[in-house]
Amino acid sequence: MREYDDQFDPLLESAIRNYQQNYNLNVTGTLDPDTVNQMMMPRCGVKGCCQYNYNKFRIIGASISSFGENAKADTVIGFHHGDHGDGLPFDGPKGVVAHAFTAVDGRIHYDADEKWSLLKDPARDEMDLETIAVHEIGHVIGLDHSSEKESVIFATIGFGTIKRKFAFR
């Protein structure tokens, strides 16, 4: 049995290099401050995507009005706490803020424990709901995460950050 220590082995160094490359960081293979800061950012919980295209939406969930509850919807949007039955439990504030499934499944889930904002300028401790919605809808229509930090489909985002040029209002 191997004794565990705090030394990097080649497998861990390779994983860190891969992470740094995916997030356009300086590829060092070490947990430098930029890498650690990136790892601590709020993030999307999507693991992979496929391409499909559907156009019907139904909104359900905490403090959200329902539209056409009896109609079949291709995409269902909801706010959930912790383990909500899809195998991807939320971890509370400041971790995974949302995740989505391909349009074949069509669910978009938001972490109800986050502070969400629909304001033009969200506060530094709030997530911009419209930005995250655009990101998650991107997954539903088949987009995977981008390695471009300015992209709305980049896997992490800071609180108070807006990455949208339009409003749903």
Rank of each mutant, 00 (worst) to 15 (best):
residue 58 R to W: 04
residue 33 P to C: 01
residue 57 F to V: 11
residue 22 N to A: 11
residue 37 N to E: 14
residue 27 V to L: 08
residue 86 D to M: 11
residue 89 P to Q: 11
residue 14 S to L: 02
residue 60 I to G: 06
residue 41 M to L: 14
residue 17 R to N: 09
residue 38 Q to F: 03
residue 14 S to T: 04
residue 9 D to M: 05
residue 3 E to Y: 11
residue 168 F to T: 02
residue 35 T to W: 08
residue 126 E to F: 03
residue 163 K to N: 07
residue 41 M to T: 01
residue 79 F to D: 04
residue 63 S to N: 13
residue 104 V to N: 14
residue 144 D to K: 13
residue 111 D to S: 10
residue 73 A to E: 12
residue 119 L to V: 01
residue 1 M to I: 06
residue 168 F to Q: 06
residue 127 M to V: 01
residue 44 C to Y: 00
residue 56 K to N: 13
residue 149 K to I: 01
residue 113 D to A: 07
residue 21 Q to R: 12
residue 140 V to R: 09
residue 33 P to H: 01
residue 139 H to M: 01
residue 167 A to L: 07
residue 19 Y to S: 01
residue 2 R to D: 08
residue 39 M to K: 00
residue 4 Y to N: 07
residue 46 V to E: 06
residue 50 C to S: 15
residue 151 S to G: 01
residue 12 L to K: 09
residue 59 I to R: 12
residue 81 H to S: 12
residue 111 D to F: 05
residue 131 T to S: 15
residue 88 L to R: 13
residue 130 E to A: 05
residue 52 Y to N: 11
residue 159 F to Y: 15
residue 4 Y to A: 08
residue 157 I to S: 08
residue 101 F to S: 08
residue 36 V to S: 03
residue 7 Q to R: 13
residue 140 V to N: 06
residue 20 Q to K: 02
residue 58 R to L: 12
residue 108 I to Q: 09
residue 20 Q to H: 04
residue 48 G to M: 10
residue 154 F to V: 01
residue 140 V to H: 10
residue 161 T to H: 10
residue 45 G to K: 00
residue 123 A to R: 10
residue 144 D to E: 15
residue 18 N to L: 06
residue 71 A to T: 09
residue 107 R to A: 12
residue 10 P to K: 14
residue 17 R to Q: 15
residue 65 S to W: 10
residue 69 E to S: 13
residue 144 D to S: 15
residue 76 V to D: 05
residue 57 F to N: 08
residue 145 H to D: 06
residue 16 I to M: 05
